[in-house]
Structures are given as structure tokens and as C-alpha cells.
Simulated assay, not measured.
Amino acid sequence: METILTIKNLTKKFGYLTAVKDLSFTINKGNVYGILGPNGSGKSTTLGIVLNVVNKTSGEFSWFNGSVSTHEALKKVGAIIENPNFYPYMTAYQNLKLVCKIKGVDYSKIDEKLAIVGLLERKDSKFSNYSLGMKQRLAIASALLNDPEILILDEPTNGLDPQGIHQIRTLIKKIASEGTTILLASHLLDEVEKVCSHVVVLRKGEKLYSGRVDEMISSHGFFELKSEQHEALASFLQNNPNFLSVKQEGELITAFLKEPMDAATFNKLLFDNGITLSHLVKRKESLEEQFLKLTDTI
């Protein structure tokens, strides 16, 4: 699989503050990667470093297996790391013509990219008349003008209303389905779960997890249980090697599975041990629950 970006032991310090600490991960072609973390976790700083707008303190990164310089590599990158910045009195088409001049791209690309983001019919409207969501989509069109191999987005749905958020997420999926690798930074768990195939979880500049989203939430799940024989049930679960942990809140017992087990098998196991249940629900841990588990470790 072709490697787009490799980051090794990257560190960035601002005086006494360490914004990124010994960070390593790899981005391969054809996936949608999310850098997930709360505000101040180092997401934007990491993007700034690989885009050559922030100087690293130590560590290294390389684009396209290190086959080209960072300057040359960035010609194959499209990025939006700040709020869309266009001339308000000019139309969308006129603004993109300026971007084409700067990037050395033929004007014929403009209509093509406006069509992708759903703004072709509004190309002659002034930027000042665009909604926030339309402005964000125009920025994405601008970033796509040079047919980048990777598109980098920093908090792409920030400040948008629900309709705007849905439009941007749908657009990201569409662009990715056509072969463009995408790297986005977000503090929204819902965004990463719905859009990304891979995730890097950061907190205070440190990596807590890196891998596929579906593998992060591929725990065997947990049972929510109630029984009139509460003490016997709790004792049985705590001494059973099939469970990682057991949590009690009032009458409700939550038992986290170490191995796969369906509800019917589990119910029979308890019945055979003289325990009957008044409540049995099997659930899967969400990305949010996994994220909270990870961030609670720091």
C-alpha cells in the first residue's frame, strides 16, 4: 500500500508547553483519517508542521515515502487549516481564478470542482452572499483545484448548522470514494465515527490510539443485567474468566466481555448456575465510550 505521509517521533514545544509529544503514525493512500482529540490536544499543530507552516522542535516527517522534498510534495496536497479566506466582493468563479493563477492550474478545472461541491449554479454569486456552509464548500473546491492526492481539513464542520454539517460530511465521503486520501482534524466523535476509516486519538499532544475506527470499537461488548439474586450474580461474574470487568450501579450490573458470547448462551449459563435474570441487554461500546476509556488513562 502506497504511503502518503509518515510521521516519526514528532515533538513541538512552545516555551514550557509541549503541544505535540513524540508523535508517530502513518497515512496510506485511499483512506479517510481522523485526528481526534479535545481542543488543545495538538491536532492543528500537527497539521501545521506537516504543511510547513509550523516549525517542529524534533522528530521527522516525510511525504510520499520520502521520494520528494516537502516543497514538491505540497504541490500534491490540498489543505484548509483556517477559515475560508476569499474576496467578499468577487464571485466564486473570480475567486477560484485567482487561486488557479497562484497554483498554476488551468481555469478549466474551476467548473469541474464547483460541480463536485454543488456550487456550479452559484458560481457567479458573490462570496459575501454565500452561507457559512457554502463558503466552506467553496474552500474545499479551491483545495481540490490542483487534483491533490491528499486533502487536509482542520475542523471542517466547525460553526455549521446541522444541514451544513451533513453537506460537508457527505462531500468528504464523495471525494474519498473517488480515490483522494483525506486527513481531517476534529474534536467531534460523531464526525470521526461517521466519516473516517482510521483514527489517531490525541490528548495533550500524546497519541493514545492509532488504527482503524472499526477495530477501536470492536470490543466484544457488554451485558446490562438485573436479578433478584443480585449478590449471587455479582459474585458469579467477578469469578468468571469470560469477563474483563464488572460494574455495579444500584440494581444494574454491567459486565464487560473478554471473549465473544451471545445473550442466549449467557442466559443459559446463569440459569444452569441457579441464577435467573429479570433484565438482560447486550450492547456494543460506541466510539465515545472507547474514547472516554482511553482519555481517562492520562
Rank of each mutant, 00 (worst) to 15 (best):
T3N: 05
L183M: 08
V192D: 02
F222W: 09
G118F: 09
K135H: 07
F25K: 11
R169H: 10
L287W: 06
L51K: 13
K123G: 00
S186T: 15
D214V: 11
G211C: 10
I275Q: 09
S142V: 03
R169G: 03
P162N: 08
D161E: 06
I175D: 00
G15W: 12
L145E: 07
L269Y: 11
L257T: 11
V195S: 07
I80A: 11
A263K: 15
Y33E: 08
S69N: 11
N65G: 09
K207W: 02
K101G: 05
I217V: 14
T18G: 08
L36H: 13
Q136Y: 04
P84Q: 03
I110R: 08
P260L: 02
I165Q: 11
T91V: 08
K226C: 06
E288G: 05
S286Q: 01
F61N: 03
I102G: 00
E259K: 14
K194S: 10
Y130F: 15
A176S: 13
D106T: 13
V54L: 12
N31F: 13
I152Y: 05
A115Y: 07
L225A: 01
R283K: 15
K103A: 07
L189A: 01
G205W: 05
I7L: 12
D154E: 06
G250F: 07
T11P: 03
L47G: 02
A264M: 15
N28S: 14
P84A: 02
S44T: 14
C100L: 10
A185S: 15
